[in-house]
Each structure stands twice: as C-alpha cells, then as structure tokens.
Write a protein that binds this DNA or RNA. Structure first.
Lengths: 227, 227
DNA sequence: TGCCGATTATGATATATATCATAGCCTGAT
DNA sequence: ATCAGGCTATGATATATATCATAATCGGCA
C-alpha cells in the first residue's frame, strides 16, 4: 500500500509548505495509498469524513444523487487536486460521492492529524484555505459558465475542458459516457448524443469509438461562447 | 461611521471565538461600518480585495457579468453572512459584485489584519475555514437543486427560499425584481412573470404589488420537488 | 405636471429540449 | 454460445422555454 516515495512527493511542496519536517515525517509514515480501477467508488455519499484525500494520478468525478433518482456530476478532479475538500471542514459526513473515471491512485491522510497541525500552525491552515477556496471557486465558475449556455454551448464547453485542462491535446479518449456528460451539463443523454453527432457531421469534431478529436477548435470555441 | 457597540457584537462570538481580547480590541477600533441604500453597489467586480466584509443587517446579492452581457446572480447573503468570502483568500481582485437588495449595513475589517491573526492563530484560521466551507457548500447545494428543476420547480424553490430562510414568514415583500429572479434561476423574465401569474391563478400564491403570500405551501413544496 | 424608461404583464409564435420509440452494438454473466 | 442489460444512435413527436410584440403601470426626473 505504502509505495510512494515521500522524498520527492509533490504533496510536500504543494500542501505542506509550511509544515515542519518532523510533522511531515509523522504524516508520511502513517499515510495510506489506494489504487482504484476505472469505475470504482472512492467515496460514498454518507460516509464519515475521516481522511484528507489527495489524488496522485488518474481522474475522478464528484457527484451526488439528485432528488429524482438521477445523479448529478458536480465536477471532475485531476491529479494534484484534493478530492475530499468540499465540506471537509464543515461536515461530519460526505454529501457527495467520488468515483474513478480512470484508474486512479489516492494518498490518504488522517483528517484529525491535518486538523491538529492546522490548529497549531496558522500558516498551514491559511494555505489549505487558499487551496480549498481556489477549488470551490473553479467549481462555481464552471457552474456559472455552463448555466448561461445552451445545449450546444455546454457540449462545446465540456469538450474544450477535457481537451485543454485534462488532456492538453486536441485528441483524447473521452473519460465519461454520454450519460455522464448529460449528468454534468444537466441535459438528457439523447440530446448529448445528438449534439455530438451534429458536431461530427459539421466537421467540427471527429469521433472514433471513444476517441474524440477536435478538428476545428476555433469553431468549437465560438460555439461555446455564443451559447 | 463607527457606531456599533463591539461589546455585544455577534461577530465576536461568531467569528472571533478563538481570538484574544487584545486582538479583538485592535480590530474593533479599526473596523469601519458602512450603510448602503437598496440598490447600491457594495463591491464591484474587479475591485481589489482589501477587506473582510460582514453583513450586519439587510440583504444583498452576489452576482457577476456573464459573457453575453447578462448578469448572473450567484447567491443571496443574509445578516451574519460574510459577504466577501468566495475568493477572498485565493484572489487579489473580486470576481463578482455585491449589491444591496435592502438597506444594508456592513462591518469591514482590514483583510491583512485578519490574515495576520490567522497566520499566527491556527484555531482562528480553522474557524474561518469552516465558515467559508459552509457558505460555499450552501451555494453549491442551491445551485445543484435549482439545476435539476424546471421552470416551475425553480420558481417554487426560490419563493420557498425567501419565505423560509430569509423572512421566516409565508407573506413577505419580494426583495428582487422578476428580472433578478430570472438572473438567479437562469430563465427569462417573461417566463418568471408568467409562472408567477400561473401560480397566482391556481391559488397557490397571492400577489399584492410587491407582496407575495404563499397561500398553499404544501402544493408549492410539491411543485418544487417534482420539478 | 408630464414625460421617459424600466418593470410588470400577456399573447402569439418560434425554437430548443425532453420524451418516447426503435435498433444496433458491445460487454459481462450465465 | 447465448442472453440480458447498458450504451450509443437516430427519428418522430410532445412539451417546455425563448423570442418577439404589445400594452399597462409605476417611479424618477426635467
């Protein structure tokens, strides 16, 4: 389980910049690491919040069960993101679930330990706060952006999101099903599929099985902006 | 300007629970208090973030300018809410605006001072973090709730929100225009107006000028839930 | 006082989106 | 190997929502 090398761990500079070496050592020896296969559930809505979970590699989705039995995807998280941060300091139980969209590895740190260090180390607490703020900020901005768009704009937006922010390439394997795209943008599966087809027919994207290639990024960008 | 009595101020217990008396005194003597008339802008998108702003009384809206020149209302804030918290620890400039929906009073505290106390006082930093988390959590939940509903459900939801969370009464003066309701739920003004008319025709609400009375809360609740 | 622009209101119509139906395909389970 | 179920896909249709047009009302302001 405990296979990573803490010496070169990016968490050290990313997260523990203001923490003393001895405290880091203590955390390091007690951290746990987990591997999840694509599709596996990492956090279940209702679970007690006991750990601070950091995504070392892979891709996950945060989602919740809407009132009408449909799932709603809240956001996606990339490596270097803190997965369990939404209500981690204000709630006792998770109000959302997390599942792996690709094979993923998490590094888990006991939450009480983090809290205890933070209580005694204001600079550390401030740096956590900053990161949590940035993360929720990004979620909110994406929400607002998606909200003001219509179907085509939303699809364009999410495609550009995966292309630019996740894979940094104009060609990539879509990590989500059409259904999950629908759950994120708040539209029906059929319309997601139809819209992708339309974009393909217009030569804006190419679809080869699970592979999406953005053929005309400029037009896709315009569609995203003009709704 | 500096008219409030810090002795009995709710901020003291709400916000400064872990701060020493001398630090509180120092903050108290330097805080500033501002009065805003209904409609006045409190924070302008792009302003530098210099103060920690706390709403003593009144009601405000947080909003931003969407890409298509339309405004989007992000959320409403009530007394005891911290108005300037969204990106306050992660950004240099406000990414949203704040305006008074009712005559409002704010208590402003120099942000550097708050930061400096937090850096030296982990417990205080943690308590801020908890409050920010709760606030953004609530915003997110409302977003998700509204997102999964259709027009009628969204209108019902916002009416119940004002009735229960803001005014604690089944009869209240709507603090927002139809246009602002539309900007919050992400629909057009005409449809907001039409929907309110329909609810009135069905006897579920009564409209007397700016006064809304929820006549059949149970049905309104059902509309909100069943979308 | 009277005018102007914004807000509320309503109707007619166009458009966007959801729903329902059907089918091929793939994958996992038996 | 076969079946069941989920995912992708597409079309027809119903419904929800936006857009456009018009008008009444209200409040600020010259």
């Amino acid at each position: 389980m405990n296979t990573c090398n803490c010496e070169g761990c990016e968490l050290r500079s990313l997260f523990f910049e203001n923490v003393s070496n001895s405290e880091i050592e203590s955390i390091c020896t007690r951290k746990t690491q987990f591997h999840y296969k694509k599709g596996e559930v990492i956090i279940q809505e209702g679970d007690e919040i006991q750990e601070f979970i950091y995504l070392k590699s892979g891709l996950v989705k945060l989602y919740r069960n809407g009132s009408n039995d449909k799932q709603q995807i809240i956001c996606f998280a990339l490596p270097l993101d803190f997965v369990s941060l939404l209500s981690i300091f204000s709630e006792k139980y998770y109000k959302y679930s997390v599942a792996a969209l690709e094979d993923s590895v998490t590094c888990n740190i006991n939450l009480d330990e983090v809290k205890s260090i933070a209580s005694q180390n204001g600079k550390f607490a401030m740096s956590i706060m900053e990161k949590i703020n940035k993360a929720t900020d990004n979620i909110l901005v994406d929400f607002l952006e998606v909200k003001q768009k219509r179907l085509f704009g939303r699809i364009a937006y999410i495609l550009l999101y995966f292309s630019r922010k996740v894979y940094n390439s104009s060609s990539f394997e879509l990590p989500v099903s059409r259904k999950e795209m629908a759950e994120y943008i708040g539209m029906t599966v059929e319309n997601v599929i139809r819209t992708l087809s339309d974009l393909r027919k217009d030569g804006i994207i190419k679809i080869n099985g699970p592979i999406i290639e953005i053929a005309d990024e400029e037009r896709l960008e315009r569609i995203s902006e003009l709704s």
